[in-house]
Computed example of a mutant assay.
Amino acid sequence: MLKNEKGFTLIEMLIVMLVITVLLLIMVPNVLKHNAVINNKGCSALVKTVEAQVQVYELENGTKPTLNELESGGYLKEGTVCPNGSKITIGTDGRVSASDGNS
């Protein structure tokens, strides 16, 4: 008399592990590739936010701010840096830009 045991065989488990491994091998490079795009878009959004804060500062104080003035005045967090590592700079004309730290 054979028992009717329920469960997975070793072969079934190996097949499942193989399928999961193949899916991970396909998915991980795609996620890493899109990470740079996401960080660049985040940097663009941060530049727009800093531009808005420059305008608010100018309306409240009548002068164009520096990045340090925005940070010390509570308009921005200390050490504001883009997600992709670029530094935010504010020109003398109040124009905001992001430049990589290598330059």
Rank of each mutant, 00 (worst) to 15 (best):
M1C: 08
K3D: 13
N4H: 10
G7F: 08
T9P: 04
L10R: 10
I11V: 15
E12G: 05
M13D: 10
I15A: 15
V16S: 15
M17H: 00
M17V: 14
L18F: 11
V19P: 04
T21S: 15
T21R: 05
V22D: 01
V22S: 10
I26F: 07
I26R: 08
M27H: 08
M27L: 11
P29V: 02
N30G: 13
N30S: 12
V31Y: 06
L32K: 11
L32I: 05
K33Y: 05
N35F: 12
N35D: 12
V37D: 14
V37H: 11
N40C: 00
K41H: 04
G42R: 07
C43F: 00
A45Q: 09
L46N: 03
K48H: 09
K48G: 08
E51G: 01
E51T: 02
Q53F: 02
Y57N: 03
E58G: 12
L59D: 00
L59R: 09
G62Q: 01
T63M: 01
K64C: 00
K64I: 07
K64N: 02
P65N: 05
E71Y: 07
G73Y: 08
G73S: 07
G73E: 03
G74S: 01
E78W: 02
E78P: 05
V81F: 04
C82Q: 08
C82R: 06
N84H: 10
K87C: 01
I88E: 02
T89A: 11
I90C: 09
T92W: 08
G94H: 02
G94F: 01
R95K: 05
V96P: 02
V96E: 01
V96R: 00
S99A: 14
G101N: 09
N102H: 13
N102C: 04
S103Q: 12
